[in-house]
Amino acid sequence: MNAWTDDELRRVGGAEELQLASRRGDGTLRPYVTMWVVRAGDELYVRSAYGPDNPWYRRAKATGTGRIHAGGVERDVTFSAAEPGVHAGIDAAYHAKYDRYGPAIVGSVVGAKAVPVTIRLVPAS
């Protein structure tokens, strides 16, 4: 399994926003979508603020691969499920990083409703 370097975790995890593009069936990238990203341990995660019907989320789940750009790092990634025991840490990371935007906004990416729409970003080889 590929792993993020310490520098990539610091830079991407510390970035305010992440650009994410999923791949089309022909391998080309879709347009980038801007979203929040958090680091929990040695992993990076994104969540769909508008649930499982959000178009970027559906496309990412369907293709399973894409590219991210954040903090000066650009990497091809696979979109993976988060392990069941990590969600409290992901919630805490979202609160620590983004609570200044207010409970309504942060509330869209934390809690039980956010668990099924969590994607772990795994660096591709």
Score class of each variant (00 low, 15 high):
Lys97Phe: 05
His87Lys: 10
Ile105Val: 11
Asp53Arg: 10
Asp91Trp: 13
Arg23Leu: 06
Ile105Gly: 10
His87Leu: 07
Gly102Thr: 09
Ile68Lys: 05
Ala104His: 10
Arg24Ser: 15
Val109Ile: 15
Arg23Asn: 04
Pro84Phe: 14
Ala81Pro: 05
Asp6Glu: 15
Glu8Trp: 13
Pro31Phe: 10
His69Ile: 00
Gly51Phe: 06
Ala49Asn: 02
Ala15His: 14
Ala40Val: 00
Ala81Tyr: 01
Thr5Tyr: 11
Glu17Ser: 13
Gly107Ser: 06
Asp7Gly: 10
Gly107Met: 08
Val115Met: 07
Ala96Thr: 01
Arg120Cys: 08
Gly51Tyr: 11
Ser22Glu: 05
Ala112Asp: 11
Asn2Phe: 09
Gly14Gln: 08
Ser125Met: 03
Ser108Tyr: 01
Asp53Glu: 10
Pro52Glu: 06
Gly25Met: 05
Gly41Ile: 09
Leu29Asp: 09
Arg100Ile: 12
Leu44Val: 01
Val110Ile: 15
Ala60Lys: 00
Glu43Tyr: 04
Val38Thr: 00
Val38Met: 00
Arg120Gln: 15
Val122Leu: 09
Ala49Phe: 11
Ile90Glu: 08
Gly64Cys: 03
Ala40Asp: 12
Glu17Ala: 14
Val110Asp: 13
Thr65Tyr: 00
Arg100Tyr: 15
Pro103Met: 04
Gly14Val: 10
Glu17Thr: 13
Trp4Lys: 05
Arg75Leu: 15
Arg10Phe: 08
Thr28Ser: 13
Tyr98Thr: 01
Asn54Leu: 01
Trp4Tyr: 10
Leu121Tyr: 03
Ala49Met: 00
Thr63Met: 00
Leu29His: 09
Gly27Ile: 01
Val109Glu: 04
Arg100Asn: 07
Pro55Ser: 02
Ala93Asp: 13
Leu9Trp: 11
Glu43Pro: 05
Tyr94Lys: 05
Leu44Asp: 00
Pro103Glu: 15
Ala40Gly: 07
Gly107Arg: 07
Arg120Phe: 15
Asp91Lys: 11
Asp6Gly: 15
Ser108Cys: 04
Val37Glu: 12
Gly41Cys: 12
Val38Arg: 00
Thr118Gln: 05
Asp99Pro: 02
Arg75Tyr: 06
Gly107Trp: 08
Pro52Gln: 05
Val38Cys: 02
Gly41Gln: 12
Gly13Gln: 04
Glu74Leu: 01
Val122Pro: 00
Asn2Asp: 14
Glu74Val: 07
Gly66Asn: 02
Tyr98Pro: 10
Ser22His: 07
Ala104Leu: 14
Pro31Val: 12
Val109Leu: 11
Ile68Phe: 09
Asp99Gln: 08
Asp99Thr: 01
Asp7Trp: 06
Asp91His: 13
Gly51Leu: 06
Val12Tyr: 07
Arg100Pro: 08
